[in-house]
Design a protein around this nucleic acid. Structure first.
Lengths: 117, 117
DNA sequence: AGCTTTCATCGTCTTTTTACGATACCAGAG
DNA sequence: CTCTGGTATCGTAAAAAGACGATGAAAGCT
């Protein structure tokens, strides 16, 4: 059933996310809310850390994130939930574990919105 | 007494903020907190709006911000306080009014930190 | 001196965030 | 099937954020 196991040692573990150019506007009424929402997702040191961890890792990383942070497992899980809700990361159940990776498209969007300031 | 009145129609109202290149690191322990703090300052639609307003205006803008937002004056004042505390904007009393402008250096710093993700 | 305008701060209330332990869930090992 | 390890979710508590009206302070006008 095509188990999509973590790629052993390739460039990154991002499952071919949308890589096209983003043509959406970078300012306007709704865009303010969009930027605010993305900024809020990153508005916590632990979540910044998580995003960085996922970006730097060549493999998918699962709950090893918990070991990297001085927080309880449930708290880390909450932060992951926030990041996922914002679309910054994605997660997929991998047997007993869960594999997380960043959503490059949303990260690019965040960069574009901030850069457009 | 050199009243520093709002420049009538020049490029921007930014009073010659530090314009040198920023050589501080863009990742690391303390940097996560720095980015988180800056992101938090922008993690609200009203504050994004304010920053944009101040960036786009050729004149300084004062409490006209209040007229642009669907919020009470005290609430807007609070948002301005948050932005000022984060170093993203600066304010100076101008007679009975207060002149706000963005701090380009901090905005650049934010852009650098996000771009480095 | 009074009055008005402009803005900040205070006090209060409501909502959201953050954090944790406890518990439930699910997949794999034995 | 039972146990175990890895996660998510629940319940709860504390803290912070967000919003508003009321009040206060300073400046300018009459």
């Amino acid at each position: 059933m095509k188990a999509l196991s973590r790629q052993p040692s390739q460039e990154a573990c991002v499952p071919a996310d949308d890589d096209r150019l983003d043509l959406r506007p970078v300012e306007g009424k709704g865009v303010d809310e969009e930027l605010a929402a993305l900024a809020k997702a990153v508005a916590h040191p632990a979540r910044v850390r998580i995003v960085r961890l996922l970006l730097r890792r060549t493999s998918c990383m699962c709950g090893d994130i918990v070991d990297e942070l001085p927080l309880a497992q449930s708290t880390v899980s909450q932060h992951l939930k926030v990041l996922k809700a914002a679309g910054l990361i994605r997660g997929e159940v991998e047997g007993a574990r869960v594999c997380y990776w960043v959503a490059p498209r949303t990260v690019r969007r965040l960069k574009a919105l901030v850069a457009a300031l």
